[in-house]
Nucleic acid binder design. Structure first.
Length: 265
DNA sequence: GGAAACGTTACG
DNA sequence: CGTAACGTTTCC
């Protein structure tokens, strides 16, 4: 029962079908570079991950410092834009799913708080971007920044500008991204309704081919809609929906924040 | 409430 | 100008 990762779509005839003019890159050229070096099996190499990883869950300072000698700060994580541009989106997504299934992907608010710690001025945003990410290097052997693209895939739900973890009570990590919502595209000023753009990062956006089976594909001429399996998760949300603006600090780009809501609360 | 149809915007 | 696709309206 593979948690329907809809990137597979309806039995994926897409590979064969793929309609004529599907833009290969969702939004950014960088997305094209989604060739990740690791296959799923790469992550499944440990026979008893539950044990192994748990010990790694407290990598403690030793491991962290090993990678970052001479600095008191937790190593500098890639800035958000960096993460966004990560060529290894699927790579990370795969890892996320596996970790989620193993119940290992725990997000510790402490990480965030501590990282933020002493107070981060705006100018420290870059440096402190580590505060916005939880790294899973111990698990993956590579930095594992969060990306919204991971969550739908890993069993996360999105609601009202918050991502919820259905797998665990993750909480406290702040911020969320609403890339694609530029102030203007939100219909801010001109009053006219502006079109939002695909985020380019979510699973559907990453999908490159139309299924040719869904109603949207079959009815493209009249429907004017993108394949259902390619419909951006962000665009599915109502711009004025609950929490859209109030909860998401409308991202002055580079000031993106994550929000986590504890499903238990 | 969801799907279909249509208007409209964005872009090459 | 043609096409893709978002947003809105209408239909069931």
């Amino acid at each position: 029962m593979s948690t329907a990762v809809d990137i597979a779509g309806p039995s994926s005839p897409d590979q064969a079908h793929s309609s004529a003019k599907i833009p290969n890159e969702p939004l950014r050229p960088s997305l094209k570079r989604s060739n990740h070096p690791y296959s799923l099996s790469h992550y499944i190499s440990t026979p008893s991950p539950a044990v192994d990883v748990k010990s790694l869950m407290q990598p403690s300072s030793s491991q962290q410092r090993a990678t970052q000698p001479g600095h008191t700060k937790p190593r500098r994580a890639p800035s958000w834009p960096d993460m966004w541009e990560s060529p290894s989106g699927l790579h990370l997504a795969h890892a996320a799913e596996l970790l989620m299934r193993a119940g290992l992907l725990a997000l510790t608010p402490a990480t965030t708080e501590q990282a933020k710690g002493g107070g981060s001025g705006p100018e420290e945003e870059e440096e402190d971007s580590s505060a916005c990410s939880t790294d899973f290097q111990p698990f993956l052997g590579a930095w594992f920044p969060f990306s919204p693209a991971l969550f739908p895939l890993a069993g996360f739900q999105m609601g009202g500008g918050h991502w919820r973890s259905t797998a665990m009570g993750a909480e406290g990590i702040e911020g969320l991204v609403a890339e694609g919502y530029s102030p203007s595209s939100l219909g801010g000023s001109s009053g006219g309704r502006r079109k939002r753009k695909r985020c380019g990062e979510c699973v559907p956006c990453r999908r490159q081919t139309n299924c040719e089976q869904c109603s949207s594909c079959r009815n493209r001429k009249r429907g004017h809609q993108i394949c259902k399996y390619r419909k951006c998760e962000e665009l599915k949300r109502k711009p004025g929906g609950p929490g859209f603006e109030s909860r998401v600090n409308l991202p002055a780009r580079g000031n993106l924040r994550w929000s986590w809501a504890d499903p238990r609360s």
